[in-house]
């Protein structure tokens, strides 16, 4: 994370990445299994039309599609659009065309990429054929793309026995990159942290002190405004001990995740409690921030490594019970 400080608000890159595991069900399993064997199947609709990729349910009768038939891996471009600037994970990483290709033996075109160098090299009515991926795994990407077929003959699997489908699932990697931006109010808070300061803000209507400050007071709907510097100590209102591992977790378990109500604030925030055995942590315990070494400070709440007990007597329940 390399936040820039030039703009009005703080920005940082944020990634949302997961390899989704999809189960396919009967129709798609057969379709994907056939692709793995370099064959394309279409679904037969109740009206007799053959559609590729096969829909799972008939658009008119709504019944499950049960009959799949092989179609050719040659076809005709029905419409297309040029892709001058491919985005990540598209079939080709150089300019290409997305096209609707009507495979011989089918009645509805399928969407896929066509590998040509320029818009002038593709046209509606052009004959194209499947270029199979080097390794086929049972995925729509087993068709690497289509390519101009010239005069090559239609091939395809007029009658193949595919047996029980061997592909029943697929992995879908979804990798998205975002520019995350903080609100102006949060930006003040995070920039304060880079100087070792904790800035809250007061709501101009209800006069409650929020930390972090808010783009809208959740009670009054107006931004918090007047800046209040708060001390780095307060009362632990309530907590839990996290003892469950999960993907993306960055803190070793078990750890205490607690609401810390800084002195002078009207709302608690979540942070980590250390320097004490989890079994000894108590509601009402007085805590103080343990900061990272100054040279490691950034515009992040993790400048405070954790909170630890101050050793003061616990706060009386009545002093914080309305914060639960």
């Amino acid at each position: 994370m390399a936040p820039t400080t030039e703009s009005r608000v703080l920005h940082a890159p944020m990634k949302v990445e997961f390899d989704y595991t999809r189960s396919l069900g009967s129709v798609l399993s057969q379709f994907m299994s056939a692709l793995k064997q370099h064959s394309v199947l279409g679904g037969v609709l109740a009206d007799g039309r053959v559609v590729v990729p096969p829909p799972e349910f008939d658009p008119v009768t709504h019944l499950a599609i049960t009959e799949l038939v092989p179609v050719s891996d040659h076809g005709t471009v029905q419409s297309w659009s040029w892709v001058p600037e491919p985005v990540s994970q598209q079939p080709l990483d150089k300019p290409f065309a997305f096209a609707q290709v009507l495979l011989d033996g089918s009645d509805a075109p399928m969407l896929h990429a066509v590998d040509v160098d320029a818009p002038a090299d593709i046209s509606t009515g052009m004959r194209v054929r499947v270029r199979w991926a080097e390794e086929t795994i049972g995925s729509i990407r087993d068709i690497a793309c289509f390519e101009p077929a010239g005069d090559s003959e239609t091939s395809g699997s007029a009658s193949m026995d595919f047996g029980p489908p061997e592909v029943t699932g697929m992995i879908s990697p979804v990798n998205l990159a975002y520019d995350y931006a903080a609100s102006p109010e949060e930006t003040k808070f995070f920039r304060g942290l880079s100087e070792g300061k904790l800035f809250g803000q007061r709501c101009p209507v209800c006069e409650k002190v929020y930390i972090p400050p808010r783009g809208a007071c959740p009670v009054d709907g107006v931004p918090t405004a007047e800046e209040i510097e708060l001390p780095d100590r307060g009362t632990l209102t309530t907590y839990c001990v996290v003892n469950v591992p999960f993907k993306g977790q960055t803190i070793p378990i078990p750890y205490v995740s607690a609401y810390v109500l800084l002195d002078g604030a009207d709302i608690a925030f979540l942070h980590l409690i250390l320097d004490i055995d989890a079994a000894d942590v108590r509601m009402g315990m007085r805590v103080e921030a343990v900061w990272k070494p100054r040279e490691e400070w950034t515009t992040s709440l993790d400048n405070i490594r954790y909170f630890r007990p101050t050793g003061e007597p616990d706060a009386e329940y009545d002093t914080y019970k309305h914060h639960l």
Binding site: P3, P13, C240, Q249
Partner: peptide
């Protein structure tokens, strides 16, 4: 994985959040 989807780290914030259980457990204690 729901834990992942609910706990994607947000920049600048302390990543102590641990799914729905981590969110609700302190309130159960209360």
């Amino acid at each position: 994985n729901a834990m992942w989807a609910l706990s994607i780290p947000v920049p600048f914030i302390m990543p102590v959040h641990a799914g729905a259980g981590g969110y609700f457990a302190p309130h159960v204690r209360s």
